[in-house]
Design a protein around this nucleic acid. Structure first.
Lengths: 186, 186
DNA sequence: ATTTTTGCGTGACAGAAGTCACATCACCGC
DNA sequence: GCGGTGATGTGACTTCTGTCACGCAAAAAT
């Protein structure tokens, strides 16, 4: 649980009672490989903070092909945010790539916490900015460089992730076919 | 100036003195078509709120080709956010597509405002969430559907924008060549 | 241990998009 | 008005990528 505290304190300082309050709103859960934290079409119960393990956020198109919107490893937050925040049905699914332990935060509890502690709202603001910037850079990357460079940027940015994930999933994240990624000159 | 007030009050309520404080931190500026609000490589002076006109946020790759990261029309915020927020040099440029009037908010003033008024920080949090969700959906759109559908989604989502912008810029926004967009079956 | 599944590379082929070149038309400034 | 610039459509050609099919080795399941 200290993992969460360290994570938050990288952005805003907390005293013991404050963190006590925060942690009381989270619930711990454990999932096994291939289990779903979010099912497409269902309501989104939580925003998830990954303690250990690896998740993939997947969008399935009409032909059934899977596209990976994002991965989440240790100390990352992940959920179908649009659906979570508007309490509507998920358009994506969130699934374990490995056995995974998470802390779950429900929307009502998120609201209570932010109302009670403006510093925490500031924390989430920082996270939102980070997410926005990362997404924008990913868009730029897709538009400007070829597959090879995109794969290299990924290697540079998340070297540990690339080790843990099969290439087929990386391809689905980069937006190309498994074969195209496989054919890259080394 | 009431335009800004209405815009903020769509998310958080304000009384007259509060808005007085807020507006005192913004400065009004007017630019002509083809003028730059942000130059690539320079520091980013402000986050811009568009009162009237149209801007394009552009990333130029090593070959000199221009890729449009985003447009901003009336009531939109735009800047090279990564550079703005970290006070580093811009990797993108922000340029007028039409004559444009904006309100400018400097980073130090942004910080003062947020510190003084938590509600305003909540406003920016909402905006950040909106931006993140929009960026994520754009990523999904690029991965899942072909040019034709992407163009149609754009038409549906921002019909007024498509009227104002030449097709060559729309192509640079969609991430395809001008010719490919021109060759779409109607 | 032996099946089954999963990951990964490769070859062949078709289709989509990029690039280059050219033509037209409308609009703008002088 | 007139020349220049920008916006747009089109054709020819090339390159890249997706798709389908196959083979093989390692890992997982029984």
């Amino acid at each position: 649980m200290n993992q969460l505290r360290d994570h938050i304190e990288r952005i805003v300082p907390l005293d013991d009672t404050e963190f006590e309050t925060i942690s009381s709103f989270f619930s711990y859960k454990k999932y096994k490989k291939h289990q779903f934290l979010i099912q497409e079409g269902a309501l989104v119960p939580c925003n998830f903070f990954v303690l250990k393990g690896l998740l993939k956020l997947v969008y399935s198109d009409d032909t059934g092909k899977e596209h990976i919107v994002g991965f989440a490893q240790e100390d990352w937050w992940e959920t179908d945010f649009a659906a979570f925040y508007t309490e509507s049905r998920a358009t994506m699914s969130l699934e374990c790539v490995e056995d995974t332990e998470v802390l779950c935060l429900r929307l009502t509890d998120y609201r209570k916490l932010c109302a009670a502690m403006p510093q925490l709202e500031h924390f989430f603001l920082e996270k939102a900015y980070q997410g926005f910037i990362a997404a924008q850079q990913r868009i730029i990357s897709t538009m400007t460089v070829g597959i090879k460079e995109r794969y290299e940027q990924l290697l540079k940015k998340y070297p540990t992730l690339v080790q843990r994930v099969p290439k087929s999933l990386l391809a689905a994240y980069l937006g190309v076919s498994r074969e195209a990624l496989s054919r890259l000159p080394r």
